[in-house]
Design a protein around this nucleic acid. Structure first.
Lengths: 189, 189
DNA sequence: CGGCCCTTTGACGGACGTCAAATAGCGTGG
DNA sequence: CCACGCTATTTGACGTCCGTCAAAGGGCCG
């Protein structure tokens, strides 16, 4: 189930198929998900201690040794741009997550998580029904670990969203029924 | 007081002198500090919307146009390593902050913030008295915005630290009186 | 049928936020 | 040198959001 130990110090990982998560574990049982990794995503930066990459669905991935990669990039400098863009996007996502965790409520965090995933999946052509329905393999504990919450509270917020007619979840698939409403929650306050 | 608007899209900033902060502001008055910038620090990644770099003390800095920088790096590939390391460190700090904000208590966050700053200042030779005393220009609202807390709560935690004999703050200077105790709070739970 | 994990729900508690008032610094101008 | 006005910090009372604990379904697979 675990793709890699913290020895992604020496490797860059590219997800080809499926969903994965970059996870940090603390001494007790607390966990924090740094990012969800979708097909095409690059994990270019070594994460700190006690971090790993965990598969959420079945995953296919590639792994490049950093030394190797450095040579490739030196020989073919036109590839640097793409790699640099991947790192930039990683960092910008991390910065957004910092703001979410530092300054937003549980409802905002979860709404934004859903909208972010929807957008990233849409970019990859992995959505259906006018981009508002998509495969959703996450368990609530994944959402909890990504949003800095407990599974119990995630459950409460999600059922509240469901009762508000904002989303529908069934059969490992999520539908955004009221995009405007969800965005209002995500941006507001 | 503000060094740069969000048009650090086009520039890379290097701090030469003083303390600064990379800040994101939300629609209401909520603020989140992404990182404190010390002398020698590089802000290589464009932060998202509503972000800026604010001076905390008097600051001297350099700014490189990205296009320019790209040329320099293409012509002198041996400089790429250093730039890449700066980006990696930025990302690792961001990841640590994500874990702090997502999964740690107020005490842990503040203890870790203090220890992190102490370590970074020690690396720069900016500490005194066996590396446990250093200039500390931060206001409590800076700490609050960095740790995702309110200034009121920061005040309570800091006086608790002071009463516990862990730190001493006076005259814009901070002394870590009990490094082991502070580290115990920072790592624990 | 029987475990096992996931999710839901409710009662309760705790960490942190909000509000408000008092105090302390600190620069400015008289 | 002192009066003042501003901002930062401290402190306490109280409220809220989210966590904890526990119990009760559901879904899935052997």
């Amino acid at each position: 189930m675990i793709c890699r130990e913290q020895d992604l110090r020496d490797a860059v990982i590219v997800i080809c198929t499926g969903w994965a998560a970059s996870v940090v574990m603390l001494s007790d049982s607390r966990r924090q998900i740094l990012s969800f990794l979708l097909p095409g995503d690059v994990l270019s930066t070594p994460s700190g201690p006690h971090s790993s990459v965990e598969a959420i669905t079945h995953v296919q991935w590639c792994s490049f040794a950093r030394t190797e990669l450095k040579e490739i990039l030196l020989n073919q400098p036109h590839l640097i741009n793409g790699f640099s863009r991947a790192r930039t996007e990683e960092k910008m996502r991390a910065d957004e997550l910092i703001v979410d965790l530092g300054r937003r409520t549980a409802d905002e965090r979860i709404a934004r998580l859903i909208l972010n995933l929807a957008e990233r999946l849409a970019q990859r052509g992995m959505t259906r029904a006018e981009t508002m329905e998509f495969d959703f393999p996450l368990r609530q504990h994944h959402i909890a670990d990504a949003a800095g919450l407990t599974p119990v509270h995630v459950s409460k917020v999600l059922t509240q969203f469901r009762r508000g007619g904002l989303i529908k979840i069934s059969d490992r698939s999520l539908t955004i029924l009221d995009p405007a409403g969800l965005r209002r929650i995500a941006d507001m306050r």
